[in-house]
Design a binder for these strands. Structure first.
Length: 886
RNA sequence: GGGCGAUUAGCUCAGUUGGUUAGAGCGUUUGCUUUACACGCAAAAUGUCGGGGGUUCGAGUCCCUCAUCGCCCACCA
């Protein structure tokens, strides 16, 4: 059956990985389609920005999704993983603007709206979606035929429909409100797009002279340049210090305006001087104060955060930071600066622009979220949607229960243009799917929608909504969502709201929040720090399988990951280990016919080692299935790693070399079990390391050309070789003796390969009979040329002095009369004796404690008794050994 | 200010509902071309599980408290 070339000595992933992906794709293995005979399993990819390139965050995120998809596919479900990209309004617009500026020295302003948008599409066609190609390198089994983009026609329809519906429901409205303004994007932002940074700043205390010349008030501010927008000074009505000033006016420095001193609760007498300058246009609190007192709202800034004409000739056109310096300089000259304190304070930054945002008043479109949030809160409360780790639901509830109106309009061009039209003749506003047909001079809203206003529809817009497609009926709601906790508000919460509102059904059942990847020092990965490895380089060095496996293997549950490229050695060496296990098997001859299932007559003849291996395999299979069901991916990876490396390679293969050497039926049986185990291992591992497992399944002859491991059944516990615990324990006892013997050799620095003779005193006749039956195995595993079994004590007078190891099936001696260091051996045994005595004392104390006996469960007490007896036996033998050394 | 998380071997981390003498990988030390694998094999060493208190027959695990570090939200004229 095996017609393959012998496996190379070391695994080289590059060629293998490059080979399989196109084959899978061409064979349509990734395609999912409604199939009433199968259970549906679907995932939507968190759409990466169309400008994006693959980062380690994507690697983790998409590896986990791929594991889930491949797992469910092997479980026989109809799997569809919907891929696509996000148009990422502000980010893309900035990116293309930069590109045009560099390449053609042109840009937005020169090109105009229509042409600019055309150029963005052109850029997208040429450079966009790079990340989609990179995801293939990683092995992602998305249904690539279904790739979508948030600005595709269908998805844009969905956006318009949702906008119109929410407008008609009265949730979406246009209004003048205080918003976050990004001077770089020159656009409004939502609250979520503002990140607060603790930065060094100055707290300026200025004197505002009373208009009547009778003195001054001191106000404190961190933003001197906004003073041109001051329209009052507030004091607390209960503040005795200033009561007499209420209703009077101060002269606003650097201007010719007089502004009133007003009484308002907002002024906190305990803070600063108790006097607050009120700038309604540039501070949310002041805006509220302004409304209460009917104050004028004076916006002193241009969209790019330079000052405008309201700041006066000297300041007009100055950048806000330059204006700040000039303000302080002029006020200092006028003797109006009381003091300047150095402080650290939180300043809101634009997430994309990475500059301080301005809060200012402007006309924007908003969506009232209160009603939308209600069913979405309920969906998580009731458990219809589950979060993993569960604690994120607390974050979710807190945000949802205090949800604010969402500012959805952006003053950029790249995005979904808001389907609202203004009639310049009569001021009428029309909102609809298409332009109004009523007569008049209609002008469409210039603004576009927040990118997330399309992303929140992703789980159903990607399936064709608002059309009633078969995909929607079959694959919606999706099953699992895998994403980072950083977008729980931006995306996850909003998708749940949109699903409940427009589909009347939650968009997914489970949300798994991944870890955040950091470098070895715990810093976030970022381009500017230069600590963000390119996954493509990592794949070139270690292989995609190795990267996938490693990142899952090292990802702690619900915590940040400390990543470094060197850690990919874990995955790389593991792949190589598996490769060589197969290589070894291949060198023993062709694959057995029984690799899929062991026939009963063969099962009846299995050796203890073989049943031990099958038991280990079953236990691992159970653990892996449970772990995946609970999204404990790293635990599954560890389980498989340990199964392959320790149980299969270190013990089982080594043990099976004995029956394989003996040839004939023994060998046949050994090879059948090896094949059976290997094929199960390959399938168990496939979701984690898709390439190497597919390659080996073919190289070994488990699969024929045209077949794929992707659609072979995922291993389930196999009752064919139900394990007898007593037998498994005996096999473990044998391995313990092997370790004992190896230890003795190592203690005397004997080369591991040196043939020696051991003496084993068994604890009883049963143990002796079992060990004698395992003689060949023991000799092989301990590299011995002879073993003498006995029930009688070891006699140094006959065999010479010997170091020994006390094990549960017996004591193993290594007769080395001329080499033994009696003093060292005695001290080692003394140490062991002391440890045992300590343990026994503790155990006896516990067992003589009546409350322990009364309250502890029976099995715990029984175990303790058994263990104590064992330890006492071991102590007795240790004492004997000591006395035999004289 | 509110919330969440972390603190276990030199490093990075496991340790499901409390129940043997707390584990793994890397690193370190020693010895090895043994019928796959030096990307390997065999063996060894290293821990008052952050401090303190409590509950319990029994605590790395549950409760309280303190400390340090990190994240999120809110506020900061």
């Amino acid at each position: 059956m095996s017609t393959h070339e012998p496996l190379a000595r070391a695994y080289e992933p590059a060629a293998v990985e490059a080979k399989w992906f196109p084959r899978w794709e061409e064979a349509g293995n990734f395609h999912g389609a409604p199939n009433p005979d199968k259970k549906a399993y679907s995932i939507v990819i968190p759409p990466p920005n169309v400008t994006g390139i693959l980062t380690l965050g994507h690697v983790l995120n998409n590896t986990l999704q791929d594991i889930l998809c491949r797992y469910h596919r092997m479980k026989g479900e109809e799997v569809c993983w919907f891929p696509g990209t996000d148009h990422a309004g502000i980010a893309t617009e900035a990116r293309v603007e930069k590109y045009l500026r560099k390449e053609e020295n042109t840009g937005r302003d020169e090109l105009g709206r229509e042409e600019f948008i055309r150029r963005v599409w052109q850029w997208k066609g040429e450079f966009g979606g790079k990340i989609i190609r990179q995801l293939r390198t990683l092995g992602c089994s998305c249904d690539w035929e279904r790739e979508r983009f948030t600005m595709d026609e269908g998805l844009s329809n969905a956006v318009r429909k949702v906008f119109v519906e929410l407008y008609r429901k009265g949730y979406i409205y246009r209004g003048q409100r205080m918003i976050n303004w990004c001077p770089v994007a020159k656009s409004a932002l939502s609250d979520e797009e503002v990140i607060y940074k603790d930065v060094a700043g100055k707290f300026y205390h200025f004197r505002y002279p009373l208009s009547d010349g009778s003195g001054y008030l001191v106000v404190a501010t961190t933003r001197p340049e906004t003073m041109f927008g001051d329209t009052a000074v507030a004091v607390n009505p209960a503040d005795e210090r200033y009561k007499h000033l209420i209703g009077r006016t101060v002269k606003l420095p650097l201007t010719d305006r007089e502004i009133p001193i007003i009484a308002d609760e907002h002024a906190d007498p305990t803070k600063g001087t108790g006097c607050v300058k009120i700038t309604p246009a540039h501070d949310p609190n002041d805006f509220e104060v302004g409304k209460r007192h009917n104050l004028e709202v004076i916006n002193v800034m241009n969209p790019d955060a330079t000052l405008n004409s309201r700041a006066g000739e000297q300041f007009e056109g100055l950048d806000r930071f330059a204006a700040r310096e000039l303000c302080v300089k002029l006020l200092t000259e006028q003797g109006l600066v009381e003091k300047i304190e150095e402080i650290r304070h939180a300043v809101g930054y634009s997430e994309r622009g990475d500059v301080p945002i301005e809060t200012l008043v402007s006309y924007q479109w908003f969506c009232n979220m209160k009603e939308l949030a209600k069913p979405a809160i309920e969906a998580v409360k009731s458990g219809r949607i589950k979060f993993y780790p569960e604690r994120w639901s607390k974050t979710y509830f807190h945000w949802m229960e205090n949800i604010q109106d969402w500012c959805i309009s952006r003053q950029i061009w790249w995005g979904h243009r808001i389907p609202a039209w203004y009639n310049d003749d009569n001021g009428e506003v029309y909102v609809g799917l298409e332009a109004p047909t009523a007569p008049g001079r209609w002008r469409q809203e210039e603004d576009v929608l927040d990118t997330w206003f399309s992303s929140w529809l992703w789980p159903f817009s990607i399936m064709g909504w608002p059309e009633e497609t078969p995909e929607l009926r079959y694959f919606y709601p999706t099953c699992d969502l895998v994403t980072g906790p950083d977008i729980i508000f931006f995306w996850v919460a909003r998708m749940i709201m949109a699903g409940c509102e427009f589909m009347k059904e939650v968009p997914f059942r489970n949300v798994y929040f991944t870890s955040i990847i950091r470098d070895e020092q715990g810093r976030k990965l970022s381009k500017s720090l230069g600590n963000s490895p390119d996954p493509l380089d990592v794949i070139a060095t270690y292989g995609a399988d190795a990267l996938r496996f490693t990142i899952v293997y090292i990802a702690p549950v619900g915590m940040d990951i400390r990543y470094s490229n060197e850690k990919c050695e874990i995955g790389k060496t593991f792949a190589n280990k598996l490769w060589n296990a197969c290589r070894f098997r291949q060198m023993q001859g062709d694959v057995s016919a029984e690799f899929r299932e062991l026939p009963p007559e063969l099962v009846a003849k299995l050796s203890g080692d073989e049943r031990w291996m099958l038991a280990k395999l079953d236990a691992a299979i159970d653990s892996v299935n449970t772990a995946i069901a609970e999204f404990r991916f790293h635990s599954a990876a560890h389980e498989i790693y340990d199964l392959v490396w320790t149980s299969f390679c270190d013990w089982f293969i080594e043990a099976e070399k004995v029956p394989m050497r003996s040839g004939g039926a023994e060998k046949e049986r050994a090879l059948a079990v090896l094949d059976y185990a290997l094929y199960r291992i390959l399938r168990l591992l496939h979701p984690f390391m898709p390439f190497i497992t597919e390659e080996l399944a073919h190289q070994m002859g488990f699969l024929a050309d045209g077949e794929t491991i992707m659609y072979q059944p995922y291993p389930e516990r196999d009752a064919c070789a139900a394990a007898d615990p007593a037998e498994l324990d005996r096999i473990d006892g044998k391995f313990e003796l092997v370790r004992g013997g190896r230890f003795l050799k190592a203690s005397y620095n004997l080369p591991d390969g040196k043939k020696v003779r051991f003496f084993i005193k068994a604890v009883d006749a049963d143990a002796r009979a079992f060990l004698e039956s395992e003689k060949a195995s023991l000799m092989s595993l301990m590299n011995a040329e002879g073993i003498e079994f006995s029930l009688a004590d070891y006699d140094p007078a006959v065999h010479g002095a010997a170091p020994s190891q006390v094990c549960r099936l017996g004591t193993v001696y290594l007769p080395l009369a001329d080499l033994i260091d009696v003093a060292a051996e005695k001290s080692r045994l003394e140490k062991q004796k002391k440890e045992l005595e300590g343990w026994i004392a503790g155990s006896r104390a516990k067992l003589s404690n009546e409350r322990f006996l009364a309250k502890a469960p029976e099995n715990v007490v029984a175990d303790a008794r058994a263990k104590l007896a064992e330890m006492e036996e071991k102590l007795a033998r240790t004492v004997e050994l000591l006395s035999s050394l004289g």
